[in-house]
Amino acid sequence: MSTPPTPAAAPDRLEIAGLKVEVEGKQILCGIDLALPPGEVHALMGPNGSGKSTLANTIMGHPKYQVTGGSIDWRGESLLGLTPDQRARQGIFLSLQYPTAIPGVSLVNFLRAALRGLGREMPAREFLGTVKQELRTLKMDQAFLSRYINDNFSGGEKKRMEILQLAVLQPKLAILDETDSGLDVDALRTVAEGVNRVRSEDMGVLIITHYQRILDYVTPDRVHVMAAGRVIESGGAELVARIEREGYDSMLRAAGLETEPAEEEAVAAGAPGA
């Protein structure tokens, strides 16, 4: 709403069809169909090992993930063949499950390099103001400005740092790969508020999670459930409640997949704060 779309530009729509992906010769995704219309928030759920992170990394173009079939279109054009940074320049952002530390590179320098890469350099004063404001919003100390990115950060600090970058870089499509995992309630709320804030700016969001905690704060437009490299169920926000109630078992059975024993994460999902 705030940033008007460029006229004549194709809508910021992600369209995945029949996507097959291999990692080191092993088939992980066996034909994914998924569409994310502009500005919508979708949740991608499913048990561990169902291929959620693979999908996220494949959309971003991680070199380890080999696309062996199907297509990923963004704004009506294929993303396949583009490097991750080219995709980033197309407006796609991935919040990593395990953000990497880069010793010696401060947050400020990192973000400036990113903005430069995206062709959106800002005057230094405005830039610093923005970053400082985001740090306050995310309840992070100003000292993070000069700290080396993710170096000796706690799990929660890393996740908040991802949201901060999301807010500063303002992509058109944000994929949050388990940004909610490893967070305490306060941190989760802060992160969720962050998501809600950017969501209101016309940004498509794909929230990948295997528990519904974050979805208590961010209501998705649609929910997809993945298992064994496929989307086995799609529906509205009500699907979240159903998963909370029944777990994935019934869906897995309905899809003709064997149910796996409850995993630790599934137990953790019922833990305080949910």
């Binding site: 991680h62 490097t83 940074d85 980033a88 952002f93 990593l96 880069i102 390099a113 903005l115």
Partner: peptide, 10 residues
């Protein structure tokens, strides 16, 4: 990869 996801070329 992390840098690339932010738009920074290799």
């Amino acid at each position: 990869f992390y840098c690339q996801t932010r738009g920074i070329a290799e």
